[in-house]
């Protein structure tokens, strides 16, 4: 469990010459029951790692698609507790690595230790907190370490060599490369400079640490491009959330995920 489960997944994929498909969905969007159905469909479609968002009232790193998803989830009564319960339900039926994505305040209000203990008990393996840089993360790093949760940090196009070193030392499980300036959101094309950016980061990151690329990826060809450039994984978020918003059938959603997964095999 914990970051071992994440590490094992990357090792196995690497041995098969595949990249990882990370799929993001908002917990409780549009409601708990349907949220679980989409998560199951993502597993069935071949996602390698699931990122499960905890809805927050003020998601400052997210674009309109995920903002609206948070609102839908909050409107139907989602809380951090129901998000972890959802993780537990999924864990009972699947060994897929599960990463929680949450802004810091909900974790802080729950309590860093209590939250990480509950998350670990629910079968969560990792944690991404987009508004928590390493300078503010000491307490949560300790709490995560104690429970075996991987606290995952992000690098960006703005990160210089020294900064990448700090983030590389702090992160567990994998390192998340934010591929574009701005917020999350599906785009028609990869941000200009994404592939050179991946190559720059790969030169700075130890080969044992998987580099995962996200922000703005929406199509199989985007996934193929970043995996071909050497990334260990690709994250698709907003495009997946759009499917939920459109109310597609879970089978159709699984087919969408399958199409993305195919693109990780290069």
């Amino acid at each position: 469990m914990g970051w071992d489960r994440i590490g094992d997944r990357f090792s196995r994929l690497k041995a098969r010459g595949e990249g990882a498909l990370l799929l993001y969905l908002m917990a409780g969007d549009p409601d708990l029951e349907r949220s679980l159905a989409y998560l199951r469909a993502a597993v069935a479609g071949g996602a390698d790692i699931l990122e499960l968002g905890i809805p927050f009232s003020d998601p400052m790193a997210d674009g309109p698609t995920i903002q609206k998803a948070a609102l839908r989830a909050l409107t139907t009564g989602a809380t951090p507790k129901t998000a972890l319960d959802l993780a537990r339900s999924l864990r009972e039926e699947s060994e897929i690595p599960l990463v929680i994505m949450s802004y810091y305040n909900p974790i802080l209000q729950w309590g860093e230790e209590a939250f990480t203990e509950e998350a670990a008990a629910c079968g969560v393996d990792g944690l991404i907190v987009p508004d928590l840089p390493p300078e503010e993360a000491r307490g949560l790093m300790q709490a995560a370490e104690k429970t075996g949760l991987a606290l995952i940090f992000l690098v960006t196009p703005e990160s210089g060599k020294e900064r990448v070193k700090v983030l590389t030392e702090c992160t567990r499980g994998f390192l998340y490369l934010v591929a574009r300036y701005g917020t999350t959101g599906a785009k028609g094309a990869l941000a200009e400079g994404t592939l050179p950016l991946i190559r720059r980061m790969l030169a700075l990151v130890p080969p044992t640490l998987p580099l995962v690329v996200g922000f703005g990826l929406s199509r199989p060809e985007h996934v193929r491009e970043v995996i071909s450039a050497g990334a260990a994984g690709a994250v698709v978020g907003s495009r997946a959330v759009e499917q939920v918003a459109a109310g597609v059938a879970p089978e159709e959603f699984a087919a969408f995920v399958h199409g993305l997964k195919e693109a990780t095999r290069i």
């Binding site: 840089p133 960006t156 934010v178």
Partner: peptide, 13 residues
């Protein structure tokens, strides 16, 4: 106080 922001803003701060 402190600096609780997305990583992309850290260099600018």
């Amino acid at each position: 106080g402190g600096r609780f922001v997305p990583e992309i803003l850290m260099p600018a701060l």
